[in-house]
């Protein structure tokens, strides 16, 4: 088993796509953190804690890169037929798949940890340079939740790639499903959405969404992760509760901020684009 894991690590290291996706995950997190601090406007009624929590939550932006990293891990084997060599070296296929899962989970953990660390440093430096409060007690819990969530997305990508072996189809389906379909299900059909990966991820990060029932697994709770301080927050309306990690929402916010002047203008512009799409994404750490 160790030999197979070692082989998988070598295969991961030896292709450029792994390095490109890892760099993309880190850069994406850092850029969105900088944008959030310096460009995006605060939402109406947003507390200082919400703002800081939301900025550090940008570490979650790495998840899409890791999802694709996982998908390429299995679809690449079928696309280039290298899976034949793997099964010849180890005819017991379950061992090959288990070794791949271990290697990808550990690599995903490393990449998401680096992305979270880069996000934290960028957030701290940016907030300090902007003369704002730098830290909140639940920031470690947020970062750990982001790392765990992104690592799980790596494994999810591997599984999707094993089921949908066509690389382009698998990446397109995963992108459409996790970026749009699940997002809608979590918010508009929460009875189903809470059991889906996106719903579980939001529960992991300790979201409180009014009218949205999530699984009781917030990362910030003392019982779930000893040593991390629990914080409670009042539930807020969906306007504040929309997920900030969603690219379309973040992009919407960016454009709103760029093309309107001042907080009042930004709020009006946001509302004009639709209540959900214009929302200032916010999490509330549990």
């Amino acid at each position: 088993m160790n030999d197979l894991v070692r082989a998988e690590f070598l295969k991961i290291r030896s292709v450029r796509s792994s390095w490109i996706l890892a760099a993309g995950a880190v850069i994406f997190c850092v850029l969105w953190t900088i944008l959030d601090v310096f460009v995006l406007k605060p939402s109406p009624g947003e507390t200082a804690h919400d703002r800081i929590a939301g900025i550090y939550q940008m570490a979650q932006q790495s998840y899409l890169f890791l999802l694709i990293f996982g998908i390429l891990g299995t679809t690449g084997e079928y696309r280039h037929q290298t899976v034949t060599w793997a099964f010849l070296a180890s005819p017991v296929r379950e061992r090959v798949l288990a070794a791949k899962a271990v290697a990808y989970a550990l690599t995903g953990l490393l990449i998401s940890a680096v992305a979270a660390a880069a996000t934290a440093v960028t957030a701290a430096v940016s907030l300090a340079s902007a003369g704002k409060q730098v830290f909140e007690a639940d920031v470690p819990a947020i970062l750990v939740g982001c790392v765990v969530g992104s690592t799980l997305y790596t494994l999810l990508g591997l599984a999707i790639g094993a089921l949908v072996r066509q690389q382009i189809v698998a990446v397109s389906l995963a992108f459409g499903w996790f970026y749009y379909a699940e997002f809608l299900l979590v918010f508009f059909l929460p009875a189903v959405g809470k059991w889906l990966p996106s719903g579980a991820e939001k529960a992991l990060l300790g979201w409180h969404l009014p009218g949205v029932d999530l699984l009781p697994i917030p990362m910030g709770r003392r019982r779930a992760l000893p040593g991390l301080r629990r914080r409670t927050h009042p539930r807020r309306d969906p306007y504040h509760a929309a997920p900030r990690h969603h690219l379309s929402l973040a992009t919407s916010r960016l454009f709103t901020s760029l093309f309107t002047s001042g907080r009042r203008g930004a709020r009006e512009g946001c509302r004009g684009a639709g209540a959900v799409a214009a929302a200032r994404p916010r999490r509330s750490a549990g």
Partner: peptide
């Protein structure tokens, strides 16, 4: 049946 981005040596080492 090779990954086109991998070198011959790396393929054999893996």
């Amino acid at each position: 049946a090779f990954h086109p981005g991998r070198s011959a040596r790396t393929h054999l080492l893996a």
